[in-house]
């Protein structure tokens, strides 16, 4: 399946990332799980932005999802969550394009203090629907591949960027941004994935 689940724009602060704008397509998840899945995508995106160097691109495989992260030199970051079939190159081009548009629409001085409600950038949901078909972005890719030489670092799992001894499970348990419900959801999802789930 070629699918985009979410696009998020974040700001990488000194210690933590803040969310500036996001859009989700969660129709393929069961109705009762959607809010938890959304919270989770937010949480993981934030964590990964915090763990990505400035001016670098990374892609992570996690289960059946791919997480593409790009943090620019000016600390603006974009995250795109897709499945494995979505071409990496296209995903990163798309992030670049979105961040450029964001810079044009929202003044850089407001980034460090802004949050989702104060930022006026309504175009994300449109992008999310339009670029479900990666061929739409293909024309962009062709121009971009000559311009952009930043290497995409590909990781097989999120664990690759966690510090030694650190575990995603512990981070989830400690996190304050996740509700009880979502933590429980994470735990059960772990459990069902660990045995063979037909």
């Amino acid at each position: 399946m070629v699918k985009l689940y979410a696009i998020l724009v974040l700001y990488k602060g000194v210690n933590s990332g803040t969310l500036l704008k996001s859009a989700y397509d969660l129709q393929s998840f069961s109705f009762f799980q959607r809010s938890s899945v959304q919270e989770f995508m937010m949480f993981v995106s934030k964590t990964m932005v915090e763990r990505t160097q400035q001016a670098s691109r990374q892609s992570f495989k996690e289960g059946e999802y791919m997480l593409h992260v790009y943090v620019r030199a000016d600390n603006l970051a974009g995250v795109l969550i897709s499945d494995h079939e979505y071409p990496n190159r296209v995903a990163h081009t798309l992030i670049t394009k979105i961040l450029d548009e964001f810079t044009a629409a929202v003044p850089a001085s407001s980034w460090p203090t802004a949050n989702e409600t104060t930022v006026d950038f309504p175009i994300l949901p449109q992008h999310l629907t339009r670029y479900q078909n990666p061929k739409e972005a293909d024309a962009l890719t062709k121009i971009q591949s000559e311009l952009d030489e930043t290497k995409i670092i590909l990781h097989d799992t999120i664990k690759a960027v966690l510090e030694r001894g650190e575990k995603l499970d512990d981070m989830v348990a400690k996190s304050e941004s996740l509700t009880m419900h979502s933590k429980l959801f994470y735990k059960t999802a772990r459990k069902t994935n660990s045995c063979c789930n037909f």
Partner: peptide, 25 residues
């Protein structure tokens, strides 16, 4: 749609059947 919603214990003493927008949980 039907789904099982993760909830560890019945701490609210409420009915376990959820019904939202044609979805049964």
């Amino acid at each position: 749609a039907f789904d099982i919603v993760p909830a560890e214990e019945n701490f609210r003493n409420k009915s376990p059947v959820l019904h939202l927008f044609n979805c049964l949980g």
